[in-house]
Design a protein around this nucleic acid. Structure first.
Lengths: 636, 636
DNA sequence: CGAGACACGTGATGC
DNA sequence: TGCATCACGTGTCTC
């Protein structure tokens, strides 16, 4: 909050890194020989996502801090590797009260994003009011965004410490965060983070943050370790091919290095398809010629659409990630900084390519209901649908929709699904899920069109989309449920539901018994207190057995509280009523666990609390039985 | 339990009806003119199922008591119409402790079923050890089974009363059931039923039972009324055709009355397909000739398989139902009784037909993991699949598989889906679901084979089946979850899950706060008590009975103050010490004028002040007498 | 290889 | 009329 009060400052100030690293000649990130782990970039995203979405706890974000080494000094640095943002329920549900300060803060954030936007897209279209940042940028989102600029030198900060010592760190609780020996952690606390964990893995540190209070669990630690043990991946992927980025970014593989990138940006109609929001590109597209049946072009289109539509947040995260990394290398080159997205620095001067990233950014801002990175996004709004459907670009339509039908029909998809062969079925399933919708065949392109919609109309497209979203939402709920239900035996949905049900029932019964217990205690306390005070000897007793009771001067009051009963008997002294009452209770197998007998003058008051263990009685049953036992039986 | 201790009695005793009706000439059930509602038999099952499965609450069973009228006397009788058994979680999860009595009872039940089995199948194959009843027959199952024999005359019993008065009855709670003015209800209580409801509908009474405590809800009442308003059904079905049973039992329609039943039992290969378990029939089938391409034969096969495979429990229920009805008519004709299954009495002497029913019975026993009627059954075990697939009976296979693919492709299927046009979408959906998988085209048979599986292998068949089952199971869980989660705002799955999650969280936090609250109260109480009870600290205290008292953990302290005595007893809770002490005091003619009993964990503290009126005791006398009375006397 | 689990596309249906 | 929900059949993967 107070970090951003300097409203007039350049937006770049927000992105200044915490550690002063800009002068050092860090090894260029992306050199295969030095950091093989880095090439798991595309799965990094997914792993972080899996970690977050599959966790029992509700983490707001996960960041992988990538370690690099200064070739000259040998200094070690942890920098932004990748991150996944999920957000928290708080962000969505409780709307923040709008104070003047927070409004100003919001304005600042939005302006930063807006300027970021215009800086990037400004080259082609200039700043347009359409790009205004409408959605509120929550604290958590902002903290995550700002995190990209951070880095930690030689074991500084929490992640650095974790990496240096090799021991995980876990800080739970606002107060703990506030006194942490790390600026970042304290900052996180001001942004509403309540729990932060850093787990060192082979080539970096995984940081988890949550707005909720999460206590230490070995479970998530294990998951992190499993998911980020890169050896598994290496062995499985090296079998399929080389370690080149082409494996990881199939659609960009042909462009790697200095190859001609015009292959996939030459036709604006493709841009239009893959970018359902940007008005500048959408306007020029319908008049263009149909897509040529160039194999590589088609497959690229296919893949791009696939990734940008099916998992927009991933693509967005990737682009941000790719944007960030060069930022660390050339931090003072600001103008260049935000156009230097390009595919590990391979393509820098193309004007259309940055737009792709911006497009994703704008899309996220526009469609996300509650924030910037939020997961559930509607990939296309009305306008975009209009342009794509009116375009009568059937070929584009097909490539837009067909591939998801059989995303992993070929063999290589299978190879890459065995990334982390852990025994955590849910993790594996999530990996598979995430992978199967992203990994596609780069070279083999025989079945471009999947199953065509039976009817010629384009409605099924959106229908499919909607259904996809619905499923995702449902799965999200399942994840959340998994998070709140302990002891989920098997990870499959049915057992999860079953466990949830039994858990609810257990808890409900426990709650019930506790409630009655509490009430009993309260009553007990009350009576003990009142017993300590002189007994009230009052007349206004409720009821019970008026007929016979009146003649004998006996009154019985029974109150049921769950499995317990409070019995109050008021009678004349001298008839051994206490003995009779106790005998009756014994005969009914009611265990006395509190009783008090007081005699005031000729009046006797008995107050008994009993537990119904073996048998259950109603109030009427109890009072009538007790009444008869006490009044009628002169025996014992 | 104790109802069946007579182990040597004939199994028929178990099936003796509660009401003595066997002499009366009841109208033969199944006469169309008198009881049109009866012809909804096939949907009766489904309605009951829908009722149970779709209910928020978890009912163990639903029974439709069918009303009939004695033509001679005009007396009215409620008899078994149909029933659906779901069972309870208790049956499955908590394994009953095996006492000798329960073992004997189990043996009795199993023998009854075994004998039933052998009686029916004995004609053809004789008793085989394969038919042994392995699974435990739970109380609820048994109660349901026995219910088939019951009937209620002229408003007798709970169902009769409900039918007579037209007002629904709802009894919740074991104690309430135990004191109900109906033998059946009390019996239900002994079998673990905790809630029973009777709702009168047009031509009978729907009874619901549950092993759980379910409080009155108008919701289920409405569902019953909607589902069992036969007018809707009549109007919709009369539009499609006649009211003959052919509509309801399509495969049996040609055999109704005295027509030749050989049409569907003439070819054993059909029996083999529809009967995947019975070894006797399975052995003779493969050598038989392939099924002729007789249209009616094929369609019959199709339908039989459809019903017996897709919804085995329904078929089983039907057969039991059909078996039961004649049982009411000719109750003393025992030998005949269990072979008189036949399709409303039309076919009685065929040997194969009863076997079909037995087959289902055996199948249920064999495959169900936890019980007899249990819903989730694997339709075919390994053996059956081997025979069907090895038989190279492609025609049979096709008829086996094709219809489910497009069950409601024709117009008439749709017509029958509008049975109950209620506004309860879930009910409607369930109706639709249940119907669509069963209702088939009786006359129009053009598209017998739906979509053939792309591959020639028969695997997709079972795959589809399995997937169906899986879905159903999941939905089951959803229903159950809906039952335990209150305030389910919308009925859709996502919101249900969301509500469940919030509910769990709410409950957990509430539980937590309650726990701490309770602890606080306890501590408070403790301090109050200790403050209220000033430490005795005087000299003439006798610590009585160190020897025995120490072993039993009992301590008695008696203090004499003039004509009064203060008695302090400290012992373990749970032995009705209070009652014993009071009795002892009474016997000694000591009048209590103050007493307090407190239980702290396992410790019980009694503090009593008595007046010595008629007699005087010494301290030693008092404590020794009291000690012996309390410890030794298990009497009152 | 078969059983179970899951996601997907698709048609139907209710608001 | 769109939009959401649902069930279904199918392909795929894992154990």
């Amino acid at each position: 909050m107070n970090l951003w009060t300097d409203d007039n400052a350049s937006m770049m100030e927000a992105f200044l890194p915490a550690a002063d690293v800009h002068g050092l000649p860090w090894t260029p990130i992306g050199t295969p020989t030095q950091m093989p782990a880095f090439f798991t970039q595309e799965t990094l995203q997914q792993r972080l996502q899996i970690l977050i979405e599959g966790a029992r706890e509700s983490w707001a974000y996960a960041i992988f801090w990538q370690s690099s080494v200064d070739v000259g000094s040998g200094a070690m640095l942890l920098g932004w590797g990748d991150g996944y943002y999920k957000g928290s329920e708080d962000d969505k549900s409780k709307r923040r009260e709008k104070t003047a300060a927070s409004m100003a803060e919001q304005e600042h954030r939005k302006r930063v994003l807006r300027e970021l936007n215009s800086l990037i897209s400004g080259a082609a279209t200039g700043y347009s009011p359409d790009d205004a940042v409408e959605e509120e940028v929550t604290d958590t989102e902002w903290f995550f965004l700002v995190s990209m600029t951070q880095s930690f030198v030689n074991g500084a900060g929490l992640p650095g410490q974790a990496f240096f010592t090799g021991a995980p760190t876990w800080i739970a609780g606002r107060d703990r965060l506030a006194v942490a020996p790390c600026e970042r952690v304290r900052q996180a606390q001001t942004f509403g983070i309540q729990t932060m964990a850093c787990v060192p893995v082979g080539s970096g540190v995984v940081e988890l943050g949550s707005t909720e209070l999460i206590f230490h669990s070995a479970d998530i630690m294990n998951k992190v370790k499993i998911l980020f043990s890169f050896n598994n991946l290496e062995s499985s992927t090296t079998a399929t091919g080389s370690w080149l980025p082409s494996q990881l970014f199939p659609q960009q593989a042909p462009n790697h290095g200095e190859t001609d990138p015009s292959m996939w940006i030459s036709d604006p109609s493709i841009v239009e398809i893959k970018d359902p929001v940007s008005p500048s590109t959408a306007e020029i597209s319908p008049s263009k010629s149909p897509i040529p049946d160039n194999p590589s072009t088609s497959s690229l289109t296919e893949n791009r659409n696939l990734s940008s539509i099916q998992q927009p947040q991933q693509n967005y995260r990737q682009s941000l990630d790719q944007q960030q990394r060069p930022c660390q290398q050339s931090l003072y080159n600001n103008e260049f900084n935000f156009t230097d997205f390009g595919l590990n620095g391979a393509v820098t001067s193309q004007t259309f390519k940055p737009e792709h990233a911006v497009v994703n950014l704008a899309e996220s801002k526009r469609n996300s209901s509650s924030g910037f990175f939020h997961k559930k996004q509607i990939p296309g709004d009305k306008k975009s649908k209009a342009t794509t459907s009116r375009g009568s670009n059937e070929e584009g339509m097909l490539s837009f929709s067909s591939t998801p039908a059989h995303p992993v029909s070929a063999g290589q998809g299978k190879a890459s699904t065995t990334i982390a062969d852990s025994d955590h079925s849910d993790i594996e399933a999530s990996v598979r899920e995430a992978e199967s919708s992203r990994v596609v065949e780069p070279e083999k392109r025989p079945r471009k069109r999947g199953r065509k919609p039976a009817n010629g109309r384009e409605e099924p497209l959106n229908h499919v989309e909607a259904e996809r979203m619905r499923r995702e939402k449902l799965n999200q709920r399942f994840y959340a449920l998994r998070a709140v239900v302990p002891n989920v035996s098997k990870m499959d949905k049915a057992s999860l539901l079953g466990d949830a049900i039994t858990y609810i029932n257990d808890m409900r019964s426990k709650l019930e018994s506790l409630e009655s217990e509490k009430e009993g205690l309260e009553a007990q306390l009350q009576t003990v207190k009142s017993a300590a005070l002189p007994p009230p000897a009052n007349e206004q007793v409720v009821n019970a057995m008026s007929g016979k009771g009146r003649t004998t001067g006996m009154e019985i009051e029974v109150k049921l509280l769950g499995g317990e009963a409070m019995i109050r008997v008021q009678c004349q002294r001298g008839n051994h009523t206490a003995a009779r009452l106790m005998s009756a209770l014994k005969d009914m197998d009611l265990e006395v666990y509190y009783a008090s007998v007081s005699v005031v003058k000729e009046l006797m008051i008995l107050q008994v609390t009993v537990k119904m263990a073996s048998r259950r009685y109603t109030q009427e049953q109890l009072s009538s039985v007790l009444f008869t036992c006490i009044t009628d039986s002169p025996r014992h």
